[in-house]
Amino acid sequence: MKAPLRLILSGVLVVLVLASAVLWLTRPEPGGGSGAAIALPAGTKIGGAFSLIDDQNRPVTNETYRGHWLLVYFGYTFCPDVCPTTLQTIADALDKLGKTGAQITPLFITVDPARDTPSVMARYVHQFDSRIIGLTGTDAQIAEVAKAYRVYYAKETPKDGTAYTMDHSSFIYLMDPEGRLAALFGPQTAAKELAAAIGQKLGQDK
């Protein structure tokens, strides 16, 4: 099996596993709502070292954010629906957290570095919240960080010649100050649920 095909199949498998977890763990409970956080199998590693460029054109690594709680989301600025919706959810959740929100550094990492330059990222993320930091990089750098976070993405070029889109998984990662996954949230998580889950997690670590 050729390497590109192995990578595609691996990415699809990750998406299927995570999507199954979302469907199971966010199912409606009798007489109640849905849970916000997704549980992953024990030993599943999410996150790791990366080297990228922030929206102020400065080089950053995972060590730049060591000691900070991170809310990480992968997408792209030309995304027509899920990305802007999720970024607005993140912004609303930070507002709902009040002073606790100051402990969170939200990162939006592009999966479309060809179009998402630092200046494009800066204009885009600040439409939602000035606290959100956009990160981009080379194709290789994006591939590396996407692999560390088990993110699936692929370029989709329409046959009619219109602008391409990026198919990608859509999860929100809460990373603790040591760079470990603290919680994983599905794409349908509401701002209220997200804020409550983050607040509880940070409260447990005070």
Rank of each mutant, 00 (worst) to 15 (best):
residue 1 M to V: 13
residue 2 K to S: 13
residue 12 V to P: 11
residue 15 V to Q: 14
residue 17 V to Q: 14
residue 17 V to Y: 06
residue 19 A to Y: 14
residue 19 A to E: 15
residue 19 A to N: 14
residue 19 A to V: 14
residue 21 A to Y: 02
residue 22 V to S: 11
residue 24 W to I: 14
residue 25 L to C: 12
residue 26 T to G: 05
residue 31 G to D: 06
residue 32 G to V: 03
residue 34 S to Q: 11
residue 35 G to Q: 12
residue 37 A to T: 09
residue 39 A to V: 09
residue 40 L to E: 00
residue 41 P to A: 04
residue 41 P to Y: 00
residue 42 A to V: 13
residue 44 T to I: 10
residue 44 T to P: 04
residue 44 T to C: 09
residue 45 K to D: 10
residue 46 I to T: 11
residue 47 G to T: 08
residue 47 G to H: 08
residue 50 F to A: 03
residue 52 L to G: 00
residue 53 I to T: 14
residue 58 R to S: 05
residue 59 P to A: 05
residue 60 V to C: 03
residue 61 T to W: 10
residue 65 Y to H: 07
residue 66 R to G: 06
residue 66 R to E: 08
residue 69 W to L: 09
residue 70 L to V: 03
residue 75 G to A: 02
residue 75 G to V: 02
residue 77 T to V: 10
residue 79 C to S: 06
residue 79 C to L: 10
residue 81 D to E: 11
residue 82 V to I: 15
residue 83 C to D: 12
residue 84 P to I: 10
residue 85 T to E: 08
residue 87 L to C: 01
residue 87 L to V: 01
residue 88 Q to D: 11
residue 88 Q to R: 08
residue 92 D to F: 05
residue 93 A to E: 05
residue 95 D to Q: 15
residue 95 D to V: 15
residue 97 L to S: 10
residue 99 K to V: 14
residue 100 T to F: 00
residue 100 T to P: 01
residue 101 G to V: 07
residue 103 Q to M: 15
residue 105 T to F: 04
residue 106 P to V: 04
residue 110 T to P: 04
residue 111 V to P: 05
residue 112 D to K: 00
residue 113 P to H: 04
residue 113 P to L: 02
residue 114 A to I: 10
residue 116 D to A: 05
residue 117 T to P: 10
residue 117 T to Q: 11
residue 117 T to N: 12
residue 118 P to Q: 05
residue 119 S to A: 13
residue 120 V to F: 02
residue 120 V to K: 08
residue 121 M to E: 05
residue 121 M to I: 04
residue 122 A to Q: 14
residue 123 R to C: 10
residue 124 Y to R: 01
residue 124 Y to C: 01
residue 129 D to V: 03
residue 131 R to D: 08
residue 131 R to Q: 12
residue 132 I to F: 07
residue 135 L to E: 07
residue 137 G to M: 05
residue 137 G to W: 03
residue 137 G to F: 02
residue 138 T to S: 13
residue 138 T to E: 08
residue 139 D to W: 06
residue 141 Q to H: 13
residue 143 A to W: 12
residue 147 K to N: 10
residue 148 A to Q: 15
residue 149 Y to N: 14
residue 152 Y to H: 11
residue 154 A to V: 15
residue 155 K to D: 14
residue 156 E to T: 15
residue 156 E to K: 13
residue 157 T to N: 12
residue 159 K to T: 14
residue 160 D to P: 03
residue 163 A to Y: 13
residue 164 Y to H: 07
residue 165 T to R: 07
residue 166 M to V: 13
residue 166 M to A: 02
residue 167 D to H: 03
residue 167 D to C: 04
residue 167 D to P: 01
residue 168 H to G: 02
residue 169 S to V: 10
residue 171 F to T: 06
residue 172 I to T: 15
residue 172 I to W: 02
residue 174 L to I: 06
residue 174 L to A: 06
residue 174 L to F: 05
residue 175 M to S: 07
residue 177 P to M: 08
residue 178 E to F: 09
residue 178 E to P: 09
residue 180 R to I: 09
residue 182 A to H: 03
residue 183 A to D: 02
residue 184 L to N: 00
residue 185 F to T: 01
residue 185 F to E: 00
residue 187 P to T: 07
residue 189 T to Y: 07
residue 191 A to R: 13
residue 193 E to W: 07
residue 200 Q to F: 05
residue 204 Q to K: 13
residue 205 D to E: 15
residue 206 K to C: 12
residue 206 K to R: 15
